[in-house]
Design a binder for these strands. Structure first.
Length: 430
RNA sequence: UCCGGAGUAGCUCAGCGGUAGAGCGAGUGACUGUUAAUCACCAGGUCGGGAGUUCAAAUCUCUCCUCCGGAGCCA
């Protein structure tokens, strides 16, 4: 049996079709009633009159409630008076299940109420638009790597050792042993780069940070490419190219969703490659010129990132951070030991860091001494060190946080709306 | 963890020592072009929990809980 979806309504003009969905809203009259039918792909106005529909269908106006599941059969026609430009003149309306009084109305609600009803809130226009843009962003990421000879390498979620510092690990019991939820697939990605040349991993990531801010989730999605025979400049080339591609795909395929969100699209259209690349040292100068008391060696706070990113319409890449504030696996700058071959990409409009990456340390002795300096042992990282023992190679990669990108592209005030069921420090349900 | 704000009807809020309120939503009725419809009628409450002050507490005090905003923390 053929299925019909509201987003393809223009292909159905003049045809009799059956639409299946839920009652989004309605207006009831004495001899006519209007039903806005939502089917997940769009909203269609259904017109039910005493003359065109059978009596049983017409009388359903007395029992139908918001979010009642219904099937409507009728002819699709163009209609300027309809919100979507098309409507269906119903010959038959069938109720599948009457909905109880729906808690989410079209008026204002507080964020706590909406988050408690997240499973229902997803049905509303705005959330629908965000999740569809998220989908397009994720598809763009996958297409980007798949089309450029990267191999997908799925990395484990249960891990034995930390990648990004032990303070933010979620600990779990693994048959009597301690295991941790992954903070990053990177170390495994490096093994993959030695096997396949160019790989990416893409999956959920967990950070037990006690951060309660508009840009932190405890569970978020990250894509991490890792590339053999790739230095920091090449790494930045890929990061820039990927983000530019994501933005262009959203602009091409999700314009109406951006409009639903009232996103200033000109800000996205202003994103142009090449993206600016500045060193950490230059970034410090920008801060100082803007009156911020900042010393070389400190890490940027949220406000600092905003000042830096506001200098540019495109995302800006800051490279060569002080090695002291960066992870053990990052290669030192051959020209300055105090700097790591690291890069962060900061999104425009104050959305902060969307990418963090680096050229990796390929010298085994340097790695071992830093592992020890962090209080860990060679044993803890024995398989990782094997990657340097058996054909060490220059390589680089980065991680892109999907929700930060969704938040920026959608122009959201808070990251909690970027994922269907957000996990934050204060929310585990629904 | 710190600072600030808030918990009153299904929802959003007003009331701030003296009879528990409004708008929206729900319900009932009218309407053949509605877009957050309009109009009329109507139901709806352990004022976050506990303790205290007072003749009297939604209102003042203490305490706990929850949420929100910011800071810190955080590739």
């Amino acid at each position: 049996m053929k299925e019909y979806f509201i987003q393809h309504a223009k292909d159905y003009v003049g045809k009799t079709v059956t639409l299946k969905g839920w009652a989004y809203s309605f207006r009831k009259g004495g001899k006519i009633w209007f039903l806005q039918l939502r089917d997940g792909t769009g909203v269609m106005q259904c017109v039910v009159t005493k003359f065109d529909a059978d009596e049983a269908s017409f009388e359903l106006k007395n029992v139908i409630t918001q979010e009642t599941s219904v099937m409507v059969t009728g002819v699709i026609k163009e209609e300027p008076r309809s919100p979507g430009g098309y409507e269906i003149l119903a010959s038959k309306v069938e109720v599948v299940a009457i909905a109880e009084e729906y808690p989410i109305s079209k008026k204002e609600h507080g964020i706590d109420f909406l988050m408690n009803n997240r499973h229902l809130w997803l049905r509303s226009k705005r959330q629908h638009a965000i999740i569809r843009i998220r989908h397009t962003i994720i598809k763009a990421i996958r297409d980007y790597f798949d089309d450029r000879d990267f191999t997908l390498l799925d990395t484990p979620i249960f891990q034995q050792a930390a990648t990004e510092g032990t303070a933010t690990l979620f600990e779990t019991d693994y048959f009597g042993e301690k295991a941790y939820l992954t903070q990053s697939g990177q170390l495994y990605g490096e093994a993959g780069a030695a096997a396949f040349g160019k790989i990416y991993c893409f999956g959920p990531t967990f950070r037990a940070e006690k951060s309660s801010t508009r840009r932190h989730l405890t569970e978020f999605w990250m894509v991490e490419p890792e590339m053999a025979y790739c230095d920091l400049d090449m790494d930045m080339d890929v990061a820039e190219d990927l983000v530019f591609y994501i933005v262009s795909q959203v602009l091409e395929h999700r314009r109406s969703e951006l409009e639903t969100l009232e996103r200033d699209i000109s800000k996205l259209e202003a994103v142009q490659s090449p993206f600016p690349r500045i060193s950490y040292t230059d970034a410090v100068k920008i801060l100082q010129e803007n009156g911020v008391e900042f010393e070389w060696g400190d890490d940027f706070g949220g406000g600092d990132e905003t000042i830096i990113s506001n200098q540019f319409p495109s995302p800006v890449m800051v490279h060569r951070y002080p090695s002291a504030i960066k992870a053990f696996y990052m290669k030192r700058d051959p020209e300055n030991e105090k700097q790591a071959m690291a890069l962060d990409m900061l999104a425009p409009e104050g959305y902060g860091e969307i990418i963090g990456g680096s050229q990796r340390e390929d010298d085994i002795d340097a790695l071992i001494s830093r592992i020890k300096a962090d209080g860990a042992t060679e044993e803890d990282y024995s398989w990782y060190l094997d990657l340097r023992r058996y054909g060490s190679f220059p390589h680089s990669g980065f991680g892109l946080g999907v929700e930060r990108v969704v938040s920026w592209i959608c122009g959201l005030k808070h990251i909690r709306e970027t994922i269907p069921f957000p996990r934050t420090i204060s929310r585990l349900n629904p």
